[in-house]
Amino acid sequence: MKKIKAVIFDMDGVISNTIPLHYIVNKRVADQLGIEYSHEWNMSMQGLSRTDTVKEIVAASTKKITQEEFEQLCEQKNKHYRSLLEKLTADDAQPGIRSFIEQLSELGLPLIVASASRNAPFVLTQLKLKDYFKDIVDVTTLKRGKPDPEIFLKAAELAGVTPDECVAIEDGAPGLKAILQTDMYAVGVGNYEYLKEADAHFRSTEVMTVSALEKHLNQKGWTLHE
């Protein structure tokens, strides 16, 4: 069996129940531009940066806006999002994820967060989970965002391992596409059809246990244990 030496996590929708918050703030941007915004569209953009998300929404509208107006939309979106994040508590972690993280930590595996959110350290602190993670990728140092694999390759580097020694967990389409361009073992979590492209698929974080993940890994000749 080949040993997994690190586990990399996306944050929104995997660790934190913040997808609904993204929907709220993104819908406000869409409302300002006079266009409809759906939950499906929201999920398709999970993993994109704040700037790229606003670009997508603007591109779908018929409005022509200046660079200054674009930057104002980005800033308003972030302020609104931060105000919602300040209300987060440990109860806003995804169901079952705390136990999953604790068990992986007990195995001595370095855990890394690869999130497009610049607010990741704050969110993890609010959820009382930050101390479990060896590191968080600083997205401001990256040249390319998801679906480019750079963020996940950087996470492996921070863990001190090679990509083929990592499990990477995602719920968003751009993020999963990024993982699938690497040699990492891809885990998709959620009900969306595209997640079935991952090496292992769990319909929710509640059923994504360490023992269930180990069974999937064993089928491909990998293990979480020594």
Rank of each mutant, 00 (worst) to 15 (best):
K3L: 12
K3A: 11
K3E: 14
I4Q: 06
I4K: 06
A6P: 12
A6Q: 13
A6F: 14
V7C: 15
V7W: 10
V7D: 12
V7R: 13
F9P: 02
D10K: 06
M11K: 13
I15E: 05
I15S: 06
S16W: 05
N17P: 06
P20T: 07
H22D: 15
I24A: 15
V25Y: 15
V25F: 15
N26I: 11
R28M: 08
V29I: 14
Q32S: 05
Q32T: 03
Q32L: 04
I35N: 07
E36T: 11
S38C: 12
E40L: 01
W41T: 10
W41F: 11
N42W: 02
M43Q: 07
S44I: 03
M45W: 07
G47C: 13
S49C: 08
T51W: 14
D52W: 12
D52T: 08
V54C: 07
S61N: 02
K63L: 14
I65M: 11
T66A: 08
Q67L: 06
E68V: 06
E68N: 04
E69L: 01
E69K: 02
F70E: 10
N78T: 03
N78Y: 00
L84Y: 05
L88H: 12
T89C: 03
D91M: 11
D92W: 13
D92N: 15
A93T: 13
A93W: 08
G96T: 04
I97F: 07
R98W: 13
R98V: 15
R98C: 12
F100I: 12
Q103E: 14
L104V: 09
L104H: 09
L107F: 11
L109T: 15
V113A: 01
V113P: 09
S115G: 06
S117A: 09
A120P: 04
P121T: 02
P121L: 03
P121V: 02
F122Y: 08
F122R: 12
V123Y: 03
K128T: 04
K128M: 04
L129S: 05
L129R: 03
K130L: 14
D131Q: 13
Y132P: 01
F133V: 00
K134V: 05
D135R: 03
D135Y: 02
I136K: 01
V139P: 00
V139I: 00
T140D: 10
T141C: 07
K143I: 01
G145I: 05
D148H: 15
P149W: 00
F152D: 02
F152L: 02
L153K: 10
A156I: 03
V161M: 07
V161D: 09
T162C: 06
C166A: 15
V167Y: 02
E170N: 14
K177V: 04
A178D: 08
I179V: 09
L180E: 03
Q181L: 09
T182E: 11
D183A: 14
D183C: 09
V187E: 01
V189G: 07
N191E: 14
N191D: 10
E193Y: 02
A198S: 02
A198H: 03
A200W: 13
A200G: 10
F202V: 04
S204E: 02
E206H: 10
E206C: 06
T209K: 00
S211F: 00
A212Q: 04
A212S: 06
L213V: 00
N218T: 10
Q219P: 05
W222L: 15
T223M: 12
T223P: 10
T223A: 13
H225Y: 12
E226Q: 05
E226T: 04
E226N: 03
